[in-house]
Simulated assay, not measured.
Amino acid sequence: MTGRILVFGGAHIDRRGRISGETAPGASNPGSWFEEPGGGGFNAARNLARLGHRVRMISPRGGDSTGEAVAAAAAAAGIDDRPFVFLDRKTPSYTAILERDGNLVIALADMELYRLFTPRRLGIRAVREAIDDADLILCDGNLPEETIAALAALADDLGKPLAAIAISPAKVVRFREVLPRIDYLFMNEAEAAAIAGIRPENPDQWPAILRGLGLKGGAITRGGRETIAFSGTVAASLAPPAIGEIADVTGAGDSFAAGVLSALIAGLPLDQAMRHGAAAAAITLQSPFATAEELSQDLLNERLPLVPDARILR
């Protein structure tokens, strides 16, 4: 089933430096440099478009060559790109340093432009029409807290399901006041701990903790360990599939979110949707890019047999 998905959030440039040897903190490390368009919302949007959905993206962007590169990537992925362009500003960027195995050492996010995406922009006629036309709204933590609150209220008033991507421990707290209005929040364990103020010894307790904060549904990825997800009265745990060499961890969480949402739109239950998310993430982990250009529903279906069944939590 094809869905109409409207995405608000980060669409910028990702710069990644990979250390070629053992990491030496506080010293010069030999390595290589790579950059591509990215951003949590944008990565998920490209994945959802490649999985066959009609995706529209709204985000602020600078009037520079970087913004043009993002627009070209959106067009290549089949996204209906509707940016707010600030001609006198630069497009945001995310710069990361990775270890040889692809794990993150440190990152710097230059996201000042996103502060200009104020709640009043949601009242623009074209934006309201896009919201009215959507089957699902997806946003990420790059948006200002007040804009997230206004979008959540608008989605609630219109009866539109709202999904969200945490982005980072520092940004996930922007969702704290609107958790009861979010249908699915995708986060890693550090982000879940940041919004909950606690990290349980038993990860199976995450659904109860987050439900206690009012969240309707969500998923907590835990690297190579079991992912926990819940929605309504259902909760499940899924061990990630075995993967050979990891090319890059960037974008894996965004791919997981896209795979889960795509399956839920198609009417699959949560435990099966988690398997779709895990398959999409595995494809991305083996790609040098933040989104795997070869991702498709057919490829995802081919990888599904490699994903174990989810365990229903009692």
Rank of each mutant, 00 (worst) to 15 (best):
L98R: 01
L98I: 00
E99V: 02
R100D: 13
R100Y: 11
L104R: 07
V105A: 12
A107W: 05
A107S: 14
D110W: 13
D110Q: 08
M111C: 08
R115I: 01
T118F: 10
P119L: 10
G123C: 13
I124W: 10
A126Y: 02
A126M: 08
A126W: 00
V127Y: 08
V127A: 04
R128Y: 10
R128I: 01
A130I: 00
A130G: 07
D132R: 09
D132H: 10
D133G: 11
L136V: 03
C139P: 00
D140E: 06
G141C: 11
L143P: 03
E146Q: 09
T147L: 05
T147C: 13
I148L: 15
A150N: 01
L151S: 03
A152T: 02
A153R: 13
A155M: 00
A155V: 02
A155P: 06
A155Q: 07
D156H: 15
D156W: 13
D156L: 13
D157L: 11
G159H: 01
G159I: 00
G159E: 01
K160A: 02
P161M: 06
L162M: 03
A163V: 01
A163M: 02
A163Q: 07
A163Y: 09
A164T: 03
I165Q: 07
A166C: 06
A166P: 11
S168A: 12
P169W: 05
A170D: 14
K171A: 15
V172S: 13
V173D: 07
F175Y: 14
R176C: 05
V178W: 04
P180L: 05
Y184V: 12
F186T: 04
N188V: 02
N188A: 09
E189H: 14
A190Q: 11
A194C: 04
I195D: 05
G197H: 08
E201P: 06
